[in-house]
Simulated scan of single mutants.
Amino acid sequence: MRLRRCGDDAVLVEVDSLGEVEAVRAAVAAANLPNLVELVPAARTVLVAAGPGTVSEVRRVLAGADLTHQPEAVGDEVVIGVRYDGPDLDLVAETAGLTTAEVVDLHTGADYRVAFCGFAPGFAYLTGLPEPLRQPRLDSPRTKVPAGSVGVAGEFTAAYPRATPGGWRLIGRTDAPLFDPRRPTPALLTPGDRVRFEAVR
């Protein structure tokens, strides 16, 4: 674990895995640091922005944290309805050696956690994807992925909150309001939340 100062009132914690990212995020969140402004997890880092003395406070918190232990998910559970009719559903099934029905069963049967958000406002990277569905991105990314598309890539699954380019394998689509700047909390999914997908017609 490495700590790098970011300006006067923030520190970037660098770790080696997503599990350690979640352990750092959970430990800092539970510590109730005074003047905590923002806690931003990513794939291998956590940015902690707070008041003066942030670096020393974060060092103190992490000195007693067990980064090898995956904390229990304590965020809200969000259920997202999905129509499993994506253009890459057959490709995902063929690559996994499954039927499309088995792909749907695997995807809806797993418990997911929001590891971090990025790429676009409201785009949440979810961990917990079953091993057979962990597949590479498309060889040639699409120039426009429709809003609401649900896809898989590597160890993650996600839903696109708006139309953007993208190379994930698309297995379905959702009407869930993934991002709305008019809401008090614009993003439907935030780090630490638990997520389940539910097949709808």
Score class of each variant (00 low, 15 high):
Met1Asn: 04
Met1Gln: 05
Arg2Gly: 02
Arg5Gly: 03
Cys6Lys: 07
Asp8Gly: 01
Asp9Gly: 02
Asp9Ala: 03
Ala10Val: 02
Val15Gln: 00
Asp16Tyr: 01
Ser17Tyr: 02
Leu18Val: 02
Gly19Ser: 02
Glu20Cys: 01
Val21Ile: 02
Val28Leu: 08
Ala30Phe: 11
Ala31Ser: 15
Asn32Arg: 15
Leu33Met: 14
Pro34Lys: 03
Asn35Gln: 15
Leu36Val: 10
Val37Tyr: 14
Val37Glu: 15
Ala42Ile: 09
Ala42Cys: 13
Ala42Arg: 07
Ala43Trp: 02
Ala50Asp: 05
Gly53Asp: 00
Ser56Gly: 02
Glu57Cys: 02
Glu57Phe: 00
Val58His: 00
Arg59Ser: 03
Arg59Met: 01
Arg60Asp: 11
Val61Glu: 00
Ala63Lys: 10
Ala63Gln: 12
Gly64Ser: 08
Gly64Phe: 07
Asp66Pro: 04
Asp66Gln: 05
His69Trp: 09
Gln70Val: 11
Ala73Tyr: 02
Val74Asp: 15
Asp76Met: 09
Ile80Ser: 05
Arg83Ala: 07
Tyr84Arg: 04
Asp85Ala: 10
Gly86Pro: 01
Pro87Gly: 00
Asp88Phe: 11
Leu91Tyr: 03
Val92Ser: 08
Val92Ala: 09
Val92Asn: 09
Ala93Ile: 02
Ala93Leu: 04
Glu94Met: 04
Ala96His: 02
Gly97Arg: 09
Leu98Arg: 13
Val104Asp: 06
Val104Tyr: 07
His107Gln: 09
Gly109Trp: 12
Ala110Asn: 08
Asp111Ser: 15
Arg113His: 05
Arg113Tyr: 06
Val114Phe: 12
Ala115Leu: 08
Pro121Arg: 14
Ala124Cys: 12
Tyr125Val: 13
Gly128Ser: 04
Pro132Leu: 06
Gln135Ile: 12
Pro136Met: 09
Arg137Ser: 13
Asp139Ile: 11
Thr143Trp: 09
Lys144Leu: 13
Pro146Tyr: 03
Pro146Phe: 00
Pro146Glu: 08
Gly148Lys: 05
Ser149Gln: 01
Val150His: 07
Gly151Gln: 07
Val152Tyr: 11
Val152Lys: 04
Val152Leu: 02
Ala153Arg: 00
Glu155Gly: 01
Phe156Asn: 06
Phe156Pro: 06
Ala158Lys: 10
Pro161Val: 01
Gly167Gln: 10
Gly167Lys: 09
Gly167Phe: 08
Arg169Leu: 15
Arg169Tyr: 07
Ile171Ser: 12
Ile171Phe: 12
Gly172Asn: 13
Arg173Trp: 14
Thr174Ala: 14
Ala176Val: 14
Ala176Gly: 06
Asp180Gln: 11
Pro181Ile: 15
Pro181Trp: 13
Thr185Ile: 13
Leu189Glu: 14
Pro191Tyr: 08
Asp193Val: 04
Asp193Gly: 10
Val195Arg: 11
Arg196Gln: 07
Phe197Glu: 13
Phe197Met: 13
Phe197Trp: 14
Phe197Arg: 14
